[in-house]
Every structure is written in C-alpha cells, then in structure tokens.
C-alpha cells in the first residue's frame, strides 16, 4: 500500500476566539487531484495554508509525504521544528495564491528563478534554462522579461504556477487561483492546471470552478463551518449530494 501524500487527522485551528477549523480529516494519495469547495468562511483556504505551515495548527495531526508538518515526533511528544527545517519542508510544496503574489521588482523569469537559486542552490544558468522551459509550458515564453505590472491577471497567475513548479514540488496547493481573474482569462489558467493534473502532479485545489472540479478532480470535498461535510467522486458529490447543506450550496452556485 502506498503512503498517502497528505494525511490530515482532526485538524483544529482557531484565530483568537474564532474556531476556523473544527476537526478536518482528509487523505490525498499521490497523483490525486482533490478539489475543495464550500462557501466563503468555511475554512478551506485556512486548511490549505495549514498544509504548508503558513498557519500553525492548534490540535490534530497533519503530515505530508509521511512527515509531520511543522513538528517532529520523539516518543509521544511533539517538538516544533526550527525555522530552517520548516522552510526546507515548504520548499517541497508549491503554492499558488488567489492574488498571484508575484515579486513586483522582478521580471517573470526572475520570479521563476529566484527560489531555485537561493533556496536549492541551483546554478544560475541551469535555473534560467529550467525557468524558460517552465514559462514555455505555461505559454508565456515571450513574456519572460516583463514585470508583473505589465502582465494581465491570467498571465501573472500562470507565471506564479511556473514559479511554484520551478522548485520541483511533490505537492501543489492552489488557493482559489482563478477567483481574482476576469472571466475570459480563467480558461488559460485552468488549462495549465489541467495539464499539470494530467502529468500526475498531486494537487489540492480550493476553487469555485465547478466545471473544473467535475472534469479534473478525483475527489471533491465540501467544507462548511470548519468541517468536511461530505467528500466523494465528482459524480457522486456534485450530481447526487447526500447532505442537505451540500445540496443547498450546490443549488446556489450551479
């Protein structure tokens, strides 16, 4: 039996008095695409951010590729990892943000090459060649010397995907990657993500794109109120939801 890529068990997270995650359990196998849907404020983005330790979890266990996220276990005690170790683990997980977050002072190619050179210590020339190849893969080879402010939202998001891929991650997290885009630009970004899924990348995608979830996802997860209400294959969950809350939500967005 293969080890799951992501295993979350009863993950809790609170911001002050507000409990955002109230026991989320989820397993993602290697090569699987999991789409997380749900109303805003349901905790789906927070959960995603917990997976690469951008947020600390308060209770439960979360592991990626068999390794605990942000902690080290000795006996039955958990020790918090030092910053450098957290960073090393994050380097293996790619993340794509709703608002792209490209580095504004760097060109598209510099954005893609920065982390491989600085974090992985890859030679500049090699990183550059790999970066150009990745930009070609997302269809933006000709934009490599453009600054983010000179690119459309869709182009920026595709550069952001290339930037994450440059670290050769074993897992990709997408946090509402198309929510900030004009409708006509969404297609290009989804096409890149679809290609990535077909190449066998393990992906967790928080999205409102039901069409994408239906066609690409292996598993669709519906979250509401900080818990997973229902999970299943796209055909089960999107066509025949068991829970009333899921039906209610799908009725509003479809």
């Amino acid at each position: 039996m293969t080890e799951p890529m992501v295993r979350a068990e009863q993950v809790h997270k609170r911001f002050g008095r507000l409990a955002v995650l109230k026991g989320v359990s989820l397993t993602v196998m290697p090569g699987e695409v999991t789409c997380v849907i749900g109303p805003s404020g349901s905790g789906k983005s927070t959960f995603l951010r917990c997976v690469n330790h951008l947020e600390k979890i308060d209770a439960g266990r979360l592991s990626v590729d068999g390794q605990l996220v942000g902690y080290r276990q000795e006996g039955d005690k958990l020790y918090e990892l030092r910053e450098r170790e957290v960073a090393r683990n994050r380097a293996e997980i790619g993340m794509v943000f709703q608002h792209f977050n490209l580095f504004g002072h760097m060109t598209a190619l510099q954005n893609v090459c920065a982390a491989p050179v600085q974090v992985l210590g890859i030679a500049r020339q090699e990183a550059r060649e790999h970066g150009i190849e990745l930009l070609r893969r997302v269809g933006l080879e000709d934009k490599r010397d453009a600054y983010p402010s000179q690119l459309s939202g869709g182009q920026q998001q595709r550069v952001a995907i290339a930037r994450a891929l440059a670290m050769r991650p074993k897992l990709m997290l997408f946090d509402e990657p198309t929510s900030a885009l004009d409708p006509e630009l969404v297609g290009d970004v989804l096409a890149v993500m679809r290609g990535l899924a077909e190449s066998g990348m393990t992906m967790i995608v928080v999205t409102h794109e039901m069409g994408f979830a239906r066609e690409v996802a292996d598993t669709v997860v519906f979250m509401d109120g900080g818990v997973i209400v229902e999970a299943g294959t796209p055909s089960e969950l999107l066509a025949n939801p068991r829970e009333a809350r899921t039906r209610d939500f799908l009725g509003k967005v479809l």
């Binding site: 951008l54 293996e92 997980i93 608002h99 977050n101 974090v119």
Partner: peptide, 13 residues
Amino acid sequence: GQHQAAHSLGMSR
C-alpha cells in the same frame, strides 16, 4: 502576500 509567497517557496525569514 509577498512574505507568504516567499515563505511558501522555502525562503527563510
């Protein structure tokens, strides 16, 4: 978001 993007790429503080 710039901090988060950098951290997510494995950069230290």
